[in-house]
Amino acid sequence: MSSPTLPRDVKYGIGLGILYLLLGTPMARDWLEATMSRHMLVQMPLLVILGIIGCRLLPVRWQNDVLARVGGSVPCVMVALFASSYWMLPRALDAALTEPLAEVGKFLSLPLLVGFPLVLAWRRLTLIGRGFVWTNFISMLAVLGWLYIVAPVRVCNSYLVNDQEHAGWYMVIGSILLFVWWLATLFIGSGVGPNKPGGNGSGTTLA
């Protein structure tokens, strides 16, 4: 059936796929990987966000099904935690630049092992669970940023030492902004807390 009007989610899905492929073009990669800040704080988060949006486009029934199969939100959060921590290692950054296999791994793991499981887990997480994920992420970002600022050595062979310091400052500033924003949503927002009853599982907003 060649329907001229595709369902909305499918259209979004196609758009998402195109964005993903665009990020994978040599030109986009060269530009986004030219500095450490862009690599860590633009390209990688974009890949995770693509995964988040992609997963939310899937029918809720599928999401629930997968979540039930893998055993709930705890293993999902764990997977995301491991995968995101790995890509915070300076060695992983260098590897992505020098080894094609590592680059492919990055493009697959950030959406599929960080974005996807986070969305799956999020709806089932209590306020405390979400708080754990947020504070864990924010503190990791702050500590890593601080390490990059004070490190007496260049941690990435592929990036200038100035670049490392810049990235460090962006991370520290970013973590503070994120923390303030998250705190604000606790008081005034509605998305952070556990799902309101009758939300029909649509409350998948991240924060």
């Binding site: 790995y86 290692l89 300076p90 060695r91 992983a92 260098d94 590897a95 020098t98 050595v153 260049r154 941690v155 990435c156 062979n157 592929s158």
Partner: peptide
């Protein structure tokens, strides 16, 4: 990936 938790940078690796 870190050679037994010893090499966290490409230089150490």
């Amino acid at each position: 990936a870190t050679d037994g938790f010893t090499a966290f940078t490409a230089e150490t690796a």
